[in-house]
Nucleic acid binder design. Structure first.
Lengths: 112, 112
DNA sequence: CTCATAGTTGGATCGTTGTCAAACAATCGG
DNA sequence: CCGATTGTTTGACAACGATCCAACTATGAG
């Protein structure tokens, strides 16, 4: 089991987190991770309406911004929200954003 | 006293709000409006380290995303946070973002 | 080893965005 | 009316970002 490179909790930048979550596809991924917990990239990115390489770029953005943690197990990569880290750094932020996203669902096929 | 065009409360989009606040200059403007209440563009944009036309574009982005309300009085334009509208649409969102921004101050001269 | 699966990387494209400079517009004071 | 103040608009430019496609890597299954 390997862990991919992630920013330390204290290095997570607010503007980076907001930017990451301001993209409909990425916000939808975060919503799915919130609902279902840890999941593989394939599952998280299913029916998003974008090419798998595009989705991969979004996984990277989410990881590098500090929103998700990615670990590799075998040939699968599991993503999960960095709840505790985000809560420690920006209390309440993740929850309010996800609550807001649930109120106004982001369509899976946002047709960008 | 004139009001500039703004999106209706129910038309405010989460991703647009997050995108607006993900830009350091705009986030700083929001923080200032939070601290000092209604203020003119000149005051809000003082010492931001960007040209006044750049600041003007940011005012527009903040307005069009639904984050601020702008009204013209004489030759001045006053901006204020749309607290109630944002609270109604995305409860807690503005406060948590501003709290987070206060924890990790956005430098006025972010040197972009 | 071979093959399929899972996901990344690189290139290309195309639209968006942040920036400055300069011109413009609108308003108020004298 | 004139000039100063306040802010917007337009144009140019560079950087960024989202996207797809194709090629690639890495791993586990058979």
């Amino acid at each position: 089991m390997r862990l991919l490179p992630h920013p330390a909790t204290e290095d997570i930048e607010l503007t980076e987190v907001l930017r990451a979550l301001s993209e409909p596809v990425r916000l939808e991924i975060a919503v799915r991770l919130d609902a279902a917990g840890e999941m593989t990239c394939t599952v998280a990115g299913d029916d998003l309406g974008v090419h798998k390489s595009t989705a991969s770029h979004h996984y990277r953005t989410l990881r590098e911004s500090g929103v998700v943690l990615t670990k590799q197990e075998g040939r699968l990569k599991y993503m999960s929200l960095r709840r505790d880290d985000l809560e420690a750094r920006f209390p309440g932020l993740l929850d309010t954003v996800l609550s807001a996203a649930r109120r106004v669902p982001v369509p899976a096929h946002a047709g960008r």
